[in-house]
Simulated assay, not measured.
Amino acid sequence: MPSRVIKSLFFALLTGLYAAPALSAPCGNTSAGFAAWKTAFVTEARSAGVGQKGLAALKGAQYATKTIWADRNQKSFKYSLEKFMQVRGADTIVALGRKRKARNPAFYTSLEKHYGVPAGVLLAIHGMETAFGNFMGDSNVISAITTLAYDCRRSDFFTPHALAALKLVDEGAISAGSIGAKHGELGHTQFLPGNILRYGVDGNGDGRVDLTNETDALASTAHYLNKKGWKRGKGFQQGQPNFEVIKEWNAAGVYQKAIAIMGAGIDR
């Protein structure tokens, strides 16, 4: 083999080695390896562009035992649709959703005009996720999302969201002490951190995206559904075009059907 070919192959191999991404931090199924995982995850976070504030938040993260318990014991999605609607208080959500829409019709009309998503769907999501903002969680977001990124069960899914959360800390959109749901979701409609970065909207025009602000949260929810393919003026019940978009909001079939049914009830 000519020497120049050997040199070319060697250079290609060397380049490939140095260009290869850093190995992911090893996952685990108990709290025992969390500290070591955080140390390894620092390298991954730096490579992803996380700065000093985000890295400091990562350092302070604690293994979220309650998050793991919640993730292992999700029972409601095993219910029948009838049982799920009863447990989630569908009649109350519809009644309150109608009242909220009637109190501020111009706001919901403006969202539908801009994004194509009707009020009923947004209000059904708002009611289902946080009882219209009355309970937005009780868990430290950074601890919850990094615990899920570490946990082997769904590490691949939650790792990008963990990196996004750390970037949000860098940007000042959230802090190391921000509180959300047990899976790291934030705000009125419970956005995961990666979705805040990608779909978050400054709905009230104050120059920042804050999902604990109702206007920002509902505008962001409408924007999310719009970007997922919402078809203006089309139906959103099972078998209709926009039901496929509702599936993008939550993977559980019973949840998807509940949003569609309650959304129609609110808009009736």
Score class of each variant (00 low, 15 high):
residue 23 L to N: 01
residue 24 S to D: 07
residue 25 A to S: 06
residue 27 C to S: 03
residue 28 G to M: 13
residue 28 G to H: 13
residue 29 N to D: 15
residue 29 N to I: 15
residue 29 N to M: 11
residue 29 N to F: 15
residue 31 S to G: 11
residue 31 S to H: 14
residue 32 A to E: 09
residue 33 G to Y: 04
residue 34 F to A: 02
residue 34 F to Q: 05
residue 34 F to M: 07
residue 35 A to R: 12
residue 35 A to P: 12
residue 36 A to G: 03
residue 36 A to H: 02
residue 36 A to I: 03
residue 36 A to S: 06
residue 36 A to L: 13
residue 37 W to K: 02
residue 37 W to Y: 14
residue 37 W to D: 05
residue 38 K to C: 01
residue 38 K to M: 03
residue 39 T to Y: 07
residue 39 T to C: 06
residue 39 T to K: 13
residue 40 A to S: 11
residue 41 F to G: 02
residue 41 F to E: 14
residue 42 V to N: 09
residue 43 T to P: 07
residue 43 T to I: 06
residue 44 E to C: 03
residue 44 E to K: 06
residue 44 E to N: 14
residue 45 A to L: 10
residue 45 A to H: 04
residue 45 A to K: 07
residue 46 R to G: 00
residue 46 R to I: 00
residue 47 S to F: 00
residue 47 S to N: 05
residue 47 S to I: 00
residue 48 A to I: 00
residue 48 A to G: 05
residue 48 A to N: 05
residue 49 G to L: 06
residue 49 G to D: 03
residue 50 V to S: 15
residue 50 V to R: 13
residue 50 V to C: 14
residue 51 G to E: 04
residue 51 G to R: 08
residue 51 G to D: 03
residue 51 G to A: 07
residue 52 Q to F: 07
residue 52 Q to Y: 02
residue 53 K to R: 13
residue 53 K to Q: 12
residue 53 K to T: 06
residue 53 K to C: 09
residue 54 G to L: 12
residue 54 G to P: 10
residue 54 G to R: 05
residue 55 L to T: 00
residue 56 A to H: 11
residue 56 A to Q: 09
residue 56 A to N: 14
residue 56 A to P: 12
residue 56 A to G: 15
residue 57 A to I: 02
residue 57 A to N: 07
residue 58 L to E: 10
residue 59 K to S: 13
residue 59 K to G: 12
residue 60 G to C: 13
residue 60 G to D: 14
residue 60 G to K: 11
residue 61 A to G: 11
residue 61 A to Q: 07
residue 62 Q to K: 13
residue 63 Y to V: 04
residue 63 Y to R: 04
residue 63 Y to D: 07
residue 63 Y to E: 05
residue 63 Y to W: 14
residue 65 T to F: 08
residue 65 T to I: 02
residue 65 T to E: 09
residue 65 T to Y: 14
residue 66 K to E: 12
residue 67 T to P: 01
residue 67 T to L: 01
residue 67 T to E: 04
residue 67 T to V: 01
residue 68 I to L: 12
residue 68 I to A: 01
residue 68 I to N: 02
residue 69 W to S: 00
residue 69 W to A: 01
residue 69 W to D: 05
residue 70 A to L: 15
residue 70 A to T: 11
residue 71 D to Q: 04
residue 71 D to C: 00
residue 72 R to F: 11
residue 73 N to Q: 05
residue 73 N to P: 01
residue 73 N to R: 05
residue 74 Q to Y: 09
residue 74 Q to N: 10
residue 75 K to M: 10
residue 75 K to C: 01
residue 75 K to W: 15
residue 75 K to I: 09
residue 76 S to Q: 15
residue 77 F to C: 00
residue 77 F to I: 15
residue 78 K to G: 13
residue 78 K to M: 12
residue 78 K to R: 10
residue 78 K to H: 15
residue 80 S to P: 11
residue 80 S to I: 08
residue 80 S to E: 10
residue 80 S to W: 12
residue 81 L to W: 11
residue 82 E to D: 15
residue 82 E to P: 07
residue 83 K to H: 12
residue 83 K to A: 14
residue 83 K to L: 11
residue 84 F to P: 08
residue 84 F to C: 01
residue 85 M to K: 10
residue 85 M to Y: 04
residue 85 M to W: 04
residue 86 Q to I: 08
residue 86 Q to W: 08
residue 86 Q to F: 08
residue 87 V to H: 11
residue 88 R to C: 04
residue 88 R to L: 06
residue 89 G to C: 08
residue 89 G to P: 05
